[in-house]
Amino acid sequence: MKSNNLYQYLLLLGDHSMILGHRLSELCGHGPSLETDIALTNISLDLFGQVRSYFQYAAKLAGGDATENTIAYLRTERKYLSSTILEQENRDFAHVIVRQFLFDVYHRLLLEELQNSKDDQIAAIATKSLKEVKYHLRFSTSWMNRLGAGTEESNQRMQVALDYLLPMAHELVTASDIETAMKDEEIAPDLNVLAIEYWTQVKAVIQESNLKYPEFKDRVVRGKQGIHSEHMGRLLSEFQYMQRAYPNMQW
């Protein structure tokens, strides 16, 4: 069971980077300006690089015919363990930035802790990824500031995105059974502790960006248990298309 928990945890880590990475890849050639288009696809590439590291490791644990690709492409929806916020659509640039920012704050705090994981390979992946994620957070924070404190319209759109996405962010910092098991083995950090710093940082940036912290009740979201929103099915049908249409195809 020990290695099964570790395997599931690697899926969870990889799925978070992969589902967001896929959403960002949809913007390739569609970004609002050349620079942001390049930035978002670069971030997507970093995220997919991390996914490869996690899934190559997971495939080794699984043994048999498992490869990074079978793990990435050949699971059914219920087996993907990413938080619900990440599969939300690119409704407009404000949604893209708010979703990115809420994830980046969590991602940086998580990787900082995972650098000290008892699992050496996870620690190595985290140390590597952290350097990249610092850039992601800089990017999303600067756009939070610019659009929040920009024009009336940009501020209003950011507020709409924040009101929609923030009620789902708690899932990122709420431990699932797998994460709790990993915490007990000192492989993963205690998300209860991480959550405190998370909300402090999120609130600070919301405030400095002239945005209002929305009054909300947390939405019930269970992506980390494999129970996703309506958007996930459509996302996966695009994501898995080639492998489903041409099984075992290779480039």
């Binding site: 620079e35 590439l45 850039y135 800089r138 990017f139």
Partner: peptide, 13 residues
């Protein structure tokens, strides 16, 4: 700086 992200992951424009 024009953009923090450039033609490849390692470069800025």
């Amino acid at each position: 700086m024009v953009s923090q992200f450039g033609s490849t992951a390692c470069k800025a424009l």
